[in-house]
C-alpha cells in the first residue's frame, strides 16, 4: 500500500483550482485560435479576438477567466493500492475552499437549493472511482451555470435512428442559442442509464479537443462527432449568438453499454471558457 496524506490532496486541489480558473486549457486555446483564423464573419472575428485577449489577460494578471468560477466538479480516480490517511472528500472540499478563497474566485454555492441563502465556496461535486494502481488522479472542472442550465436528457427508444439522435443534440444547441456563451463545446453521453448518460456527457467535456482535419469514417463515434460539428457550425449562431461559422469548437461523445429497452442520450454544453485541470499523485 502506498500512503497519500490528506494534506497532499488539499495542496493538489488548491493548485488545480488556480490552474483551471486562470489558465485556459491549451486544446481550447488552440481551437479558439484556429476558429479565429478561419472565421469570415467580421463581428464573429472581433468577438473571438476578445475571447483570446481575455484568456491572455486572465493568465497574465491572475484573474478568473470568467467570473462564474462554477460549481467545481471533481473527478477522483483512486488507485486501490493507495491508503489515504485522512478524509478524502473533506480534503477535496478543503482544497476547493482554500483555493477559491486564496485566488479570489466566486462563492457561487448555496447550501440549500430551495431556501438558497448566503453563497459559499463549497461543497463541490465529487465523483469517485476506484481504479487499479497506487496513484490518485484528480481532475477539476469548474462548470459555469449559464451553460449547465442548457443540459438535456432524452430517453430514446432502442429503435431510434441516428437522425433522431442528431436532431435532439442539434436542438439542444439551438435552444442554448446566444445565451450560454458560444462558441460551445458540446458534451454528449450516450448509453448507460439516465444518470450515467449525464455523467458521460460531463466527462466528454474532459476529452481533448482535436482540430478536425481529414475524414472520419461514417458510422463511428469520431465520424458522428464530425458530422454534428459540421451541422452545428452551419446554424449561424456564432460567437455571442451574433452569427458566423463558429458556433461550436467541438462535439465530444462518450458511450457506454445500455439496456435492450432503451437508449439514453444526454447533452452537457460548455461555454467557450471550458476550464479543467488534472494532477496525478
Amino acid at each position: 500500500m502506498r500512503e497519500i496524506k490528506a494534506s497532499q490532496i488539499i495542496k493538489a486541489v488548491t493548485e488545480l483550482v488556480r490552474r483551471a480558473n486562470f489558465i485556459l486549457r491549451s486544446d481550447v486555446l488552440s481551437a479558439l485560435r484556429s476558429a479565429y483564423r478561419f472565421e469570415k464573419n467580421k463581428r464573429a472575428k472581433t468577438i473571438l479576438k476578445a475571447i483570446l485577449d481575455n484568456a491572455a489577460y486572465a493568465r497574465e494578471k491572475n484573474l478568473a477567466i470568467c467570473q462564474d468560477t462554477g460549481i467545481p466538479v471533481v473527478f477522483a480516480e483512486v488507485g486501490q493500492d493507495v491508503k489515504i490517511s485522512g478524509d478524502l472528500k473533506a480534503a477535496i472540499n478543503k482544497g476547493i475552499k482554500e483555493g477559491y478563497k486564496k485566488y479570489s474566485l466566486r462563492n457561487s454555492i448555496v447550501a440549500d437549493p430551495l431556501l438558497r441563502g448566503n453563497p459559499k465556496f463549497s461543497p463541490c461535486i465529487i465523483h469517485t472511482d476506484i481504479v487499479k494502481g497506487n496513484k490518485i488522479k484528480l481532475t477539476i472542472l469548474p462548470k459555469g451555470f449559464g451553460c449547465e442550465n442548457k443540459s438535456r436528457l432524452m430517453m430514446f427508444k432502442p429503435t431510434a435512428g441516428i437522425e433522431e439522435i442528431k436532431k435532439f443534440i442539434i436542438d439542444a444547441v439551438k435552444s442554448a442559442g446566444p445565451d450560454a456563451c458560444p462558441p460551445y463545446i458540446v458534451g454528449v453521453g450516450i448509453g448507460g442509464t439516465a444518470d450515467y448518460a449525464g455523467m458521460l456527457a460531463k466527462k466528454a467535456l474532459l476529452k481533448k479537443i482535436k482540430l478536425q482535419r481529414g475524414l472520419s469514417p461514417k458510422g463511428t463515434v469520431p465520424g458522428f462527432e464530425r458530422e454534428l460539428l459540421f451541422e452545428i457550425n452551419n446554424l449561424n449562431i456564432g460567437p455571442m449568438g451574433l452569427g458566423g461559422k463558429t458556433t461550436a469548437l467541438a462535439v465530444n461523445i462518450q458511450t457506454y453499454p445500455t439496456h435492450i429497452a432503451g437508449l439514453p442520450v444526454s447533452v452537457n454544453i460548455s461555454c467557450h471558457a471550458l476550464r479543467s485541470a488534472r494532477i496525478v499523485l
Binding site: A50, D53, N54, Y57, A64, I65, C181
Partner: peptide, 8 residues
C-alpha cells in the same frame, strides 16, 4: 457585452 470575458 463580451460574454465569458470577465477578466477583460
Amino acid at each position: 457585452t463580451y460574454a465569458g470575458c470577465g477578466a477583460l
